[in-house]
Every structure is written in structure tokens, then in C-alpha cells.
Design a protein around this nucleic acid. Structure first.
Lengths: 189, 189
DNA sequence: CAGTTCTTTTGACATAGATCAAAAAGCACC
DNA sequence: GGTGCTTTTTGATCTATGTCAAAAGAACTG
């Protein structure tokens, strides 16, 4: 879905704000495997995903790649602490599919937000969505078994199971590839 | 710390905004064990904790009480999805100590936000803090062992270990009381 | 399409942490 | 200061999930 169309679902947008959005958000295309950001960089862009799939991950102390989250069509993605705090990112942002994105820089977003109250609203909306998404994860990780977490993902974002590689899904669920593979086998029978 | 003092650490506050804050945020005192919210209610207030300790928890499918988070001095607490979305809360908010709070209603917060750009900034700041806090939890729950999670809590919020009961801490860490007790014993020797 | 490499599955074994049960230690209230 | 609660600790198993290793399957590449 187009960025403006999406915004209009959240709130009504004045003509001036629409103008600001169209110039402030830059359309981009990137191929599969492209990195929007690597560990150590400051992420200065907030991305809206028109189409495609993005994975956020980090490398833990044992050198293992751990998926923090998946982001798809009609979602925003960035590394919040880096974007808002201008700090080095602990995370990588990697495209798992070719993506059509809209990107806005922090400076531009600040300008838009100050000029158009709609953008303020939208930013809050985005933050709340991110917060909600993350809250659900905690509940899952805290007290569901590996299999229950898998089922939960299956219900909430079924397409991920098809679209992302096994290893990425496993670390997202907080389990090993092997265990995920076994869960899958068990569920088929 | 006083609410205004805290706000002034985030941004400069105009005289009018100061006025709005002072009238909009109501000071409250509540005793230990009081509930600010129970499961099923809509949480219409955002709380700033001047002193005391608040626990957010829910009852899971097996009927067990699971701590979602602890909130202390100089933090904001509410149930974000309920407060922002006017939906029924899945969580309880319980005071683990006598608390001095400032409370602002959703409507009042909206009014303040629209009138004073500072409040907008502060709200975003609060959301970002909540998001950061929660992000760290995910990283911990995803790939740290029970003992590592304990150590992490010890480092980031040492006072919780003294102030909250064992069972509440255990479920926060995603483990049983018994395991937590054993971890403690192990670390003392 | 044969060879190389990456991904997923399967198997055997090890272990962190759960569960159940009971003892011990803290607290509160007559 | 004893009697009854609640909270914490300790002990003995049990189980889900991890680890290591190897096989099977897909997916690129020249």
C-alpha cells in the first residue's frame, strides 16, 4: 500500500501536509540481501515498507545471529534507539526480499512534525504500534513454550513462515533451528 | 523527583505549559497492595512515579501470575495499548510499596499535547523510553540464560531485587521461584 | 547438469530448568 | 511469644530443548 493511502487510514491529511509528506519521504527500491543498516552505524532513516520483507537482527556475544523482528508491508521499520537517539545501532536491518520503501530522515521528520500536526499524530501512532508489537513478544517469550510461540507466530504473521529462512525464524522464537525443524515435523503429522 | 523537575530535564517548559501540567496532572497517594488497574478495565490514566514501586502483571492461561515489568521513581507507567487504544487491559497494575504518583487522564493529556508542543515532545520521550526498556527485555529473554537474565536485572535495576517479592521477580525473568532461589544461593557462595 | 555450497531434517546424547513435595524461615496478629 | 499464614529454600526427579554430528534436500554457478 502507498504511503499516503496508509497515512489516510490513521488520520485526515491536509493538502499542505500531503505536500510535505510527498517531498519528505523518498521512494526507494532495494534488492534482496541489501542492508539498510549495519551494527555500529547510526540509522538516520525511518522506513515505510510498501512491499517486501525486512529482518532486524544482531550478533550476540557468542557470535550468533539473532533475529529481533520481522517487518512487512504496511509497517514502519527503523532501529528506534539509534534513530531517535542518534546513537550507534546494535542491530542490522536486512532485506529478505526485494523491497519498495519510503524513507524519511530524522531531520526531515522533525521538520514535518513541527510543521504539520498530522505528522505528530502519525509518529505517535508508529511508536505505539512498535510498542504493541514488542509487548506481545515479551508475553510470548516469557511464558510460552517453543511450540506455543511457533503457533502464535503462525497466527499473527503466517506469511513469515513461508517467506523467511528457518534459521531466522528459529532465533526469533528464541530456539535453535533443530528444535524448530522438529516442531514443524511434529505439527504435520 | 517532582514531575516538573523531571520534565525540565527533558526539555525547557514555557510558563503556560507549566501551568497546564500543574493543573492537568493530579497528585495521588496510594498504599501498598492498591491496584491502579485490574484486568478488563480500561486504563485511562498515565502515571508518573514520584516515589514507590509499581508492578505490572497478568494472569496467564494456566492461571499463573506473571510479572510483565517493574516501574519505579522517575518512570512513567500505564498499560500502553489500553491507554492509547481505550481498550480493555490484559494487565494489572499493582503497588508493591506506598506510592506518590502524578496522574493524567487521556483526555487531559490530549488537550495538553495539542496546546503545548512541549507535551508532545515529552510524550514521545516517554514512548521511546518504554520502547527501549521493552527492547532490552526481548534481547534478554531471547538468548540469555536464567542466571544471565538475573545478573542483567541486578545491574540495571538492583533495587528491585531488594524491594520486590521473589515470585514476582522470578516470573519477570521467565523462570520459577525455585530456580531463582537456587540462582541466588549459587551466587552467594 | 555436475559440483559446490547453503539450508533443512534426523539422530543420539547432555543439561538447564520445571515440577512436586516438604522443610525452614519470616511475618503478622491475637 | 506462641499460632497460623506466607514466602523462601532445599531435595529428588522429569522433560523440553540445546548441542554435536551427519545425512538429505535445495539452490546457485560455471
Amino acid at each position: 500500500m502507498d504511503l499516503l493511502t496508509y497515512f489516510k487510514l490513521i488520520t485526515t491529511i491536509s493538502a499542505e501536509a500531503e505536500n510535505g509528506i510527498v517531498t519528505g519521504f523518498k521512494q526507494q527500491q532495494h534488492p534482496r540481501k541489501h542492508h539498510l543498516c549495519k551494527q555500529g552505524q547510526v540509522v538516520n532513516q525511518l522506513y515505510y515498507i510498501q512491499s517486501g520483507l525486512v529482518r532486524m537482527y544482531y550478533i550476540n556475544k557468542q557470535g550468533k545471529d539473532v533475529t529481533y523482528g520481522f517487518y512487512t508491508e504496511q509497517q514502519f521499520v527503523t532501529v528506534p534507539d539509534s534513530f531517535f537517539g542518534h546513537s550507534a545501532s546494535r542491530y542490522y536491518l536486512e532485506l529478505l526480499e526485494d523491497c519498495a520503501l519510503y524513507a524519511v530522515s530524522y531531520q526531515e521528520m522533525t521538520r514535518l512534525r513541527e510543521k504539520h500536526s498530522e505528522l505528530q499524530l502519525i509518529e505517535n501512532h508508529v511508536l505505539r504500534e512498535l510498542l504493541l508489537k514488542v509487548s506481545d513478544r515479551i508475553v510470548a517469550l516469557q511464558f510460552l513454550s517453543a511450540e506455543e510461540r511457533y503457533i502464535k507466530l503462525e497466527e499473527s504473521q503466517p506469511s513469515i513462515l513461508q517467506r523467511a529462512p528457518l534459521g531466522a525464524i528459529a532465533s526469533y522464537l528464541g530456539i535453535t533451528q533443530e528444535t524448530l525443524s522438529r516442531i514443524r515435523a511434529r505439527r504435520l503429522s
